[in-house]
Amino acid sequence: MAQNENTQRTSDSGVSIWLDDLSRTRIESGSLQKLIAEKNVVGVTTNPSIFQKALSQVGPYDAQLKELGKVDVETAVRELTTTDVRNATDIFRDVAESTDYVDGRVSIEVDPRLAHDTENTAKQAVELWEKVDRPNAMIKIPATLEGLPAITATLSKGISVNVTLIFSLERYEQVIDAFIEGIAQADANGHDLKHMGSVASFFVSRVDSAVDKLLEANGSVEAKELEGKAAVANARLAYELFEKKFNEDSRWSALEAKGARRQRPLWASTGTKNAAYSDCKYVDELVAKDIVNTMPEKTLDALAAHGNGAPSIEGTYEESHSVMEKLEELGISIKDVTDKLEADGVASFIASWDSVLSDVQAGIDRVNA
Rank of each mutant, 00 (worst) to 15 (best):
N4Q: 05
N4P: 01
N6Q: 12
N6S: 02
R9F: 00
D20L: 13
L22E: 06
R26G: 12
Q33H: 01
I50P: 14
K53A: 15
S56Y: 10
D62C: 01
E74P: 03
T75W: 03
V77P: 01
E79T: 12
T82C: 13
V85M: 03
A88R: 09
A88M: 09
T89M: 12
R93Q: 14
D94N: 13
D103K: 02
G104M: 05
R105E: 10
V106K: 11
E109P: 12
P112W: 08
L114S: 02
D117M: 10
T118N: 00
T118Y: 04
E119M: 09
K123S: 10
E127Q: 13
L128E: 10
K131Y: 10
D133R: 12
P135H: 08
T144I: 02
A150W: 02
T154R: 04
K157S: 00
I159Y: 09
S160D: 11
V161D: 03
N162D: 01
L169A: 07
G182L: 11
Q185R: 15
A186P: 12
H191A: 01
K194A: 14
F202E: 09
F203K: 02
V204Q: 09
R206F: 03
A210M: 01
D212M: 06
G219S: 01
E222T: 11
K224A: 14
K224C: 00
G228V: 08
K229T: 15
A235D: 09
L237N: 07
Y239P: 08
E243P: 00
N247E: 06
D249R: 10
S253G: 10
A254D: 10
A257K: 02
K258V: 00
Q263F: 01
A268C: 03
A268G: 11
N274H: 05
N274Y: 06
Y277I: 09
C280I: 12
K281D: 00
V283G: 01
D284S: 07
K289D: 14
V292T: 09
N293I: 07
T294N: 04
M295I: 10
P296Q: 09
E297H: 09
A304Q: 00
E319K: 15
E328I: 02
G331T: 05
I332D: 07
S333T: 10
I334R: 13
I334F: 11
D339P: 00
L341R: 01
A347G: 02
S348F: 13
D354F: 04
A362K: 15
A362Y: 02
N368Q: 14
N368T: 14
